[in-house]
Simulated scan of single mutants.
Amino acid sequence: MTVTNNNPLVRPATEADTGPLIGVLAEAFHDGPLAEWLIPDPDERRTVYYRYFRDALHHGMTHGQVHTTADQTAVAIWYPRLEPAPTDTRERLAALERITGVYAPKFVLLEELFDAFHPDTPHHYLAYLAVDPSRQNRGIGATLLADHHRRLDDFGLPAYLEASNMRNRRLYLRHGYTAGPTIALPTDGPIIWRMWRGAPTTSGGRTPFPHPRPRRRSL
Score class of each variant (00 low, 15 high):
Thr73Lys: 10
Thr100Asn: 03
Phe209Cys: 14
Asp188Arg: 14
Leu152Glu: 06
Leu82Ser: 06
Met166Ala: 15
Phe107Ala: 06
Leu34Gln: 06
Ser134Asn: 09
Leu38Tyr: 09
Thr62Glu: 11
Leu113Met: 13
Arg45Glu: 14
Ala95Val: 05
Phe107Gln: 01
His123Lys: 10
Arg213Ala: 14
Thr2Leu: 11
Ala142Tyr: 00
Phe107Pro: 01
Glu15Thr: 15
Gly19Gln: 15
Arg215Ser: 04
Ala74Ile: 04
Leu109Arg: 10
Phe114Gly: 01
Thr202Ser: 15
Arg150Gly: 07
His30Tyr: 03
Met195Arg: 09
Ala94Met: 00
His67Trp: 10
Leu173Ile: 12
Thr178Pro: 01
Tyr177Glu: 13
Asp71Met: 05
Leu109Trp: 06
Arg98Gly: 05
Leu129Thr: 06
Asp17Thr: 04
Pro200Asn: 11
Ile77Lys: 03
Asp188Thr: 12
Pro84Trp: 05
Ala35Ser: 13
His123Ser: 03
Thr178Lys: 01
Gly19Leu: 12
Leu9Arg: 08
Gly23His: 14
Thr143Trp: 02
Trp78Lys: 09
Gly205Cys: 14
Arg11Lys: 11
Asp154Cys: 12
His149Ser: 11
Val24Leu: 05
Arg11Glu: 10
Leu34Ser: 07
Trp78Leu: 10
Pro212Asp: 04
Val75Leu: 03
Val131Cys: 03
Gly156Cys: 01
Val24Gly: 03
Glu83Trp: 02
Thr2Trp: 05
Glu83Phe: 02
Thr187Pro: 00
Leu171Arg: 04
Asp120Gln: 12
Pro105Glu: 08
Arg92Asn: 05
Leu109Val: 04
Pro119Asn: 02
Met61Gly: 02
Pro212Leu: 02
His63Phe: 12
Ile39Ser: 05
Asp43Met: 13
Ala116Leu: 03
Arg135Trp: 02
Ala199Trp: 11
Arg92Pro: 00
Thr121Pro: 00
Trp196Tyr: 01
Arg170Ala: 14
Thr207Met: 14
Gln65His: 00
Thr87Glu: 04
Asp31Thr: 14
Pro119Thr: 13
Glu36Asp: 15
Asp188Val: 03
Leu38Pro: 08
Leu9Cys: 08
Phe114Met: 05
Leu109Met: 14
